[in-house]
Write a protein that binds this DNA or RNA. Sequence first.
DNA 1: TGAGTATTTGAATTCACGTTCAACTAGTTC
DNA 2: GAACTAGTTGAACGTGAATTCAAATACTCA
Lengths: 201, 201
Amino acid sequence: MAQRKSRTDRRIDLIEAARRAIIRHGIDGVQLSHVAEEAGLTSGAVLYHYPDLSELLVEAQHAGMERFYEQRLRQLATVTDPVRKLVMTIRSGLPTGPLDPDVRLLNELGGAAGRNRVYGVLLTSLYDRQVSMYQSILDTGAALGVFRLSGDSLSLARNLVALEDAYGYRITARHPVIGPDEAAELILSYARTATGNDLVA
Amino acid sequence: MAQRKSRTDRRIDLIEAARRAIIRHGIDGVQLSHVAEEAGLTSGAVLYHYPDLSELLVEAQHAGMERFYEQRLRQLATVTDPVRKLVMTIRSGLPTGPLDPDVRLLNELGGAAGRNRVYGVLLTSLYDRQVSMYQSILDTGAALGVFRLSGDSLSLARNLVALEDAYGYRITARHPVIGPDEAAELILSYARTATGNDLVA
DNA sequence: TGAGTATTTGAATTCACGTTCAACTAGTTC
DNA sequence: GAACTAGTTGAACGTGAATTCAAATACTCA
């Protein structure tokens, strides 16, 4: 028998297991048995904690998203220079490679968000928060005179996040030429014209 | 009994039916019975033409993609002015609204491309062709002296397609603020700095 | 027209999955 | 340490989907 755990601990495990199962089988392809296998439990045990699989899937997506976002914020807090902040943030929004689990998970939402309102809301809220993140970097840099913005910071921030998203898809789809480094450079080239700064940290 | 059709005609029908089924249920959620229902046939009939459902799904994705791309090319051929070409192309890469079937279909590929090599190749090839399309517009405009490019045309084109992709996701996810018009304006703002042209047709 | 062929159906079969639940086990409490 | 509680298992059951195939139907062309 699998190690017995408290309700809360097991739920955390299951959310992690669901995350892995979604990445492996797709958000519309995950089955109860997949989650059970990832967690090292039987289907019955999963059902004991989550009588409705779809709720577990939503929680898994939610948790993955929060982790991704919080991680970026935390990293951002370690520096003050707007130039370094911007460069670092661009980098942290891209997958480390085609297998990056955080981005793989987020990518699963893309299609589902068009069919499922909950997923649509989740994805939209992540996008908006990331935009705010970039916007505050841009505004700060402009206020300090380091950046000379080529347009309103909201539009620039929206485009920066959009580029991140799109290159995330390209990288996980294994584009033969566009990897993490190339994508970062492409986004940076936009960021340079947007800020009027060379962005060499 | 459903109207009897020739092998080729029926296969075309089935590809269309599969397209609709994918949009409705997700690429990993489609079932044989969904396709049969969309086509007005029984599962057996579908299986008679496509013994393997996954092959039909790939064909449906492939067909949808080709149609999307050809449509853009055809539209592009109707004008010569680089400025109008660019503006029109940006517009034609965005969904008409959250329900746009062509973009909804493409979006289904995003997640699957990370798991399934065939889908990854399909999606990558579409991306690359769209990049070429933009690149040729940019190069022509530059040669005519209409555009003063802010960087190499390949990078600019890659970013333009990336922005289209990303806003396609935002729109189908029903972002409350970013609709087709707003997305077009955001991409245009990038295109303006990229080309040094006001892009007013 | 009639024989032959291609397409479609519907029923039978098999399989895989979700769901339920009694029994078991390992902690927890008194 | 006995009674209780919470977590887990495994087997049984029901459902629905894929698959198979003989029979029915519509088309082709000699």
